[in-house]
Design a protein around this nucleic acid. Structure first.
Length: 473
DNA sequence: CTGTATGATTCGGT
DNA sequence: ACCGAATCATACAG
């Protein structure tokens, strides 16, 4: 650990020398005793000092294992050296004691702590991990869950930060404790060979703690930064708009135009749409789409569609055709599955191909516009026999026991299909003009009719013959 | 750079 | 709480 080495250095600097500013141990020359053995004694003192110095560089175990400690303690010069060291220490001790260590609580640290506490990063553990997000979601209630769902990503990331923060903090604390005990042991051991008072050990521990707390502060600071970045990113994302992916828009449009009579998706439908959009997104590039975004989209779509239906006519035709094709495919599949002996589905003259339904709106726009609101306010004029057959089969399919196989999907798309079919019929046999894809569901007030069952034409209660346009609802 | 499209937000109404 | 309407702010195409 790099930091540990640095702390070690600090320790050596402060403690061993007694002169904080002075890196090594510099002893004044021993009091002069002239004589020939002076050199020899000098040599001894040098030796013992060297041993003391080097022993600090060794781990406790190592020193013990080598049994140097014993040798050191039993050295004949030891008591003398000890007293010398005590003397030196006494001289320098005042200056050490003079250095007050009263540290006022760092205002910046307090600020960081407060912020972490406010963000819920440093606070009491709320069950931890994903449970915290779940608990938060549950706390906000099922109805208001939208908000928490919207911010679940944020919460998840915050939880991640929190976890990292806590593990790091724990690691630091553990390292700090380990190191403190180690140093204390070392000092206690050394106090036998050189004068170290308990107070000094205490001070040393304080120094270590200060060092580690500065590391902790760094950790807190970077955690705060991470939270800030996360926050700003999420808040910015609210305003900074990103267009939905093409597939997502397609999915939403499909739903919108296939439920044009009542384009108010339920909560479940919204969830499903959001999921669907996000699934397609996950396969390519884009952003995930939340339920509230789906709500936004439908809100915008409704208002904008209503405001300028003409502008959306082309789009409506396109998607109506698309859903019609889908529905037809579904029906065809269902028919193939379940109606092996019935008259074949009327493919003749009604080929389910996309191109068949691509209306050149530039050419037809006038017609479309003039037909707007005017088209077929009365009963639905029966389409060509073939398409009629299709309807018959569809009705029977969705009306009776086959419903489960065909699925609600088809049912919901039948009204769209009907429009398109009538449209094609209009263009193909010249009857056109009475059944264009028109804003049939908009009432005089400009609002959508309260059509609870837009697909009432396939209601099981109605006979197959009672086909009527939902424009007459 | 400008106009349009579009997702998000706000506000009042129910 | 949800909707419509207005509005904001950005993305994007020309």
């Amino acid at each position: 650990m790099d930091e540990q080495a640095r702390i070690m250095q600090t320790l050596g600097g402060v403690n061993l020398s007694g002169h904080p500013g002075q890196g090594g141990m510099t002893l004044p020359p021993p009091h002069g005793h002239d004589g020939t053995d002076v050199d020899g004694r000098k040599q001894d003192i040098g030796d013992i000092l060297h041993q003391i110095m080097t022993i600090t560089d060794q781990s406790l175990d190592e020193a013990q294992a080598k049994n140097r400690k014993h040798g050191l303690n039993c050295h004949r010069m030891k008591p003398a050296l000890f007293s010398v060291l005590c003397e030196i220490k006494e001289k320098t001790g005042l200056s050490i004691r003079g250095a007050q260590e009263e540290e006022p609580p760092d205002p910046q640290l307090m600020r960081l702590d407060n912020m972490l506490l406010a963000e819920g990063v440093a606070g009491p553990e709320k069950g931890g991990g994903a449970a915290a997000a779940a608990a938060a979601a549950a706390a906000s209630g099922g109805a208001a869950g939208d908000n928490s769902i919207e911010h679940s990503d944020y919460r998840a990331k915050l939880t991640q930060i929190r976890q990292i923060y806590h593990t790091e903090l724990e690691k630091y604390e553990q390292a700090c404790n380990e190191f403190t005990t180690h140093v204390m042991n070392l000092l206690r051991e050394q106090s036998r060979t050189r004068p170290i008072s308990p107070k000094e050990i205490e001070r040393m521990v304080n120094i270590i703690h200060r060092k580690f707390s500065s590391i902790q502060m760094q950790l807190k600071q970077s955690t705060c930064e991470a939270v800030m970045i996360l926050r700003s990113r999420f808040l910015d994302a609210r305003r900074k708009r990103r267009n939905f992916s093409k597939q997502a828009t397609e999915i939403l449009n499909e739903y919108f135009y296939s439920h044009l009579s009542n384009p108010y998706p339920s909560e479940e439908a919204k969830e499903e749409l959001a999921k669907k959009c996000s699934i397609t997104v996950s396969q390519g590039v884009g952003t995930t789409i939340t339920v509230s975004q789906v709500s936004n989209w439908f809100g915008n779509k409704r208002i904008r569609y209503k405001k300028n239906i003409g502008k959306f006519q082309e789009e409506a035709n396109l998607y109506a055709a698309k859903t019609a094709v889908n529905a037809a495919h579904a029906v065809a599949a269902a028919v193939q599955n379940s109606q092996t002996n019935s008259p074949t589905t009327p493919n003749s003259g009604f080929q389910m191909k996309d191109e068949e339904f691509q209306l050149d709106s530039a050419e037809n726009k006038n017609t479309l516009l003039t037909n707007m609101f005017t088209g077929s306010s009365g009963s639905y004029s029966l389409p060509t026999p073939n398409t009629g057959d299709l309807f018959m089969s569809m009705q029977s399919l969705s009306g009776d026991s086959y419903q489960g196989q065909v699925g609600a999907n088809v049912q919901s798309q039948v009204d769209t299909l009907r429009h398109v079919i009538s449209q094609t019929a209009g263009y193909s046999d010249g009857l056109g003009g009475n059944a264009m894809y028109s804003p049939h569901s908009l009432n005089a007030n400009g609002g959508w009719q309260d059509a609870t069952t837009p697909s009432s034409i396939i209601s099981p209660t109605e006979g197959p013959g009672s086909v009527h346009s939902d424009t007459s609802i």
